[in-house]
């Protein structure tokens, strides 16, 4: 039993998940990520331009999900690693994203530390691999 993100639904977010495509609001110039139909900053603009985000950012907050409490689709990963970190990352371009962290430093995660997007498997469902971004220490 895993989260009901259908394959077509996942597919529609491939530009975001595979290469962090943000949407630049043509009214106010700010970048929405993930995309919105109406800009979340000016609450006016509804026309956007694609921009590729750098993938560089800093840890805004973090937690470490203990193995036993992981969502079912992350159970294999939790069993392998015991636990895994989840971050809120503030991207260089402004937006924040929620993401898993890979290669966490042995001395622990700190708010403010620099991180960089990497390409990883997120989970598998119906035999189909869902790829996407995670972040690693920069």
């Amino acid at each position: 039993m895993s989260a009901h993100i259908s394959i077509p639904m996942y597919q529609r977010a491939v530009p975001q998940r595979y290469r962090l495509t943000g949407k630049l609001c043509k009214s106010c110039g700010k970048i929405n990520f993930p995309p919105k139909a109406v800009c979340k900053y000016c609450l006016q603009g509804a026309s956007f331009e694609d921009v590729r985000l750098s993938g560089r950012g800093a840890v805004y907050s973090y937690t470490v999900i203990a193995g036993g409490g992981a969502p079912p689709e992350f159970e294999t990963e939790a069993r392998c690693k015991g636990s895994y970190p989840v971050l809120i990352v503030e991207l260089e371009e402004g937006p924040r994203v929620i993401t898993q962290m890979v290669n966490p430093p042995e001395e622990g995660i700190a708010i403010g530390m620099s991180v960089q997007a990497v390409f990883r498997k997120i989970y598998e469902e119906e035999g189909v691999i869902r790829y996407g971004f995670k972040f690693s220490p920069a």
Binding site: K81, R120, K121, I129, Y131
Partner: peptide, 16 residues
């Protein structure tokens, strides 16, 4: 390989 890596994820990283 980490549990969430495969040849495709490595390929993307090397390509970048």
């Amino acid at each position: 390989l980490d549990i969430d890596e495969d040849v495709i994820t490595m390929a993307v990283e090397a390509s970048r």
